[in-house]
């Protein structure tokens, strides 16, 4: 028997499978893997206006970034933004999901209301919040006025801008987190509660001993996704503040966008993109390491 022939025959499974995988593999290669390597490559170069690598500068782009106050500012703003939005966002969504998981009449209506922000795009939400933050006719300053508090320049005051953007972002993301957490709550086996009720356990005891441990895989998932999403924030910055005032809201993706497509500095922009990639990689790995220990799988 011909050995190449039999090898060809034996690999028929592999070849057919490859056919099914081919569209994904091609698309991932062209739009994910190639550009990732290209970004790393470009980060070591000065580029021309068209984005071609011109002069190899080694690690100078990175050295420049780490020394530049603008980039340090951007990193600081990004980390603060993540700290402002992720924990509060998840706690709120969890609270809503716990409420909406009660078996009451008309609960479907409330579930729809809580998840509604998922149907509102970042651009649309940003425009709505831009109006609410308007210093003269916006809702927030009117509320402050009625209770006799001083007015706040929400998006124009460097002290407040990042907080304001964070507030609006928490709102934008709460619908998705809610939906995922509610799904997780509904997957918890009813019998667990029935046995605990016989023992006369209170609501908060059940929450701490049954609900949260059983929900931990879902919580773990939504924390990871929220962290990654927060690092990728762009639309609300572009519409609400354009990175200002005095760069207080210049989050990393906005900074990459400006460096690349406004200043045409593709080398330093790529270096920032690589840093973003490394941060997300670390977050994901840390999450999985911690998750493995803490998470309770059913």
């Amino acid at each position: 028997m011909n050995t190449t022939g039999s090898l060809w025959k034996r690999s028929v499974n592999g070849r057919t499978a490859l056919l099914y995988l081919l569209p994904s593999i091609i698309l991932f290669s062209v739009f994910v893997f190639y550009p990732m390597f290209r970004t790393i490559y470009l980060s070591f170069f000065l580029t021309d206006q068209a984005g071609n690598a011109a002069i190899n500068v080694g690690f100078e782009n990175y050295q420049y970034l780490l020394g530049s106050s603008e980039f340090q500012n951007s990193m600081k703003a990004t980390i603060l933004f993540v700290l402002y939005t992720v924990p509060i966002g998840i706690i709120l969504a969890l609270f809503f999901a716990l409420l909406a998981n009660e078996k009451l009449k008309g609960i479907g209506f409330f579930r729809t209301m809580y998840s509604s922000t998922m149907g509102v795009s970042v651009a649309a939400s940003s425009v709505i919040w831009l109006f609410m933050f308007n210093p003269s006719i916006g809702m927030f300053n009117r509320l402050l006025q009625t209770v006799g508090l001083p007015q706040i320049q929400w998006l124009l005051d460097p002290e407040w801008a990042l907080l304001s953007v964070s507030m609006s972002t928490i709102w934008m993301n709460v619908g998705f987190s809610f939906l995922i957490l509610l799904g997780g709550l509904q997957n918890i086996d009813e019998h667990l509660y029935e046995s605990s009720r016989i023992d006369g356990a209170g609501y908060f005891y059940r929450l701490r001993r049954i609900t949260l441990p059983m929900l931990s895989p879902t919580l773990f998932f939504i924390i990871t996704i929220s962290l990654i999403n927060a690092f990728q924030t762009f639309g609300q910055i572009d519409i609400l503040t354009k990175g200002g005032p005095s760069q207080s809201t210049n989050l990393i993706v906005y900074s990459i966008y400006r460096e690349a497509f406004v200043n045409y500095q593709f080398g330093t922009a790529s270096a920032q993109a690589v840093i973003l990639f490394v941060i997300i990689l670390i977050v994901t790995i840390l999450q999985f390491k911690l998750g493995e220990r803490k998470v309770h799988y059913q």
């Binding site: 995988l21 994904s24 991932f28 190639y34 990732m36 970004t39 990459i256 497509f261 690589v274």
Partner: peptide, 23 residues
């Protein structure tokens, strides 16, 4: 190949947008 698929989830889309625009 499965691992390759998983790894695409860790590459933020924004980190690759510059070469993608050139493509």
């Amino acid at each position: 190949i499965f691992f390759l698929f998983i790894s695409t989830m860790m590459i933020p889309w924004e980190a690759t947008m510059i070469p993608n625009v050139f493509t």
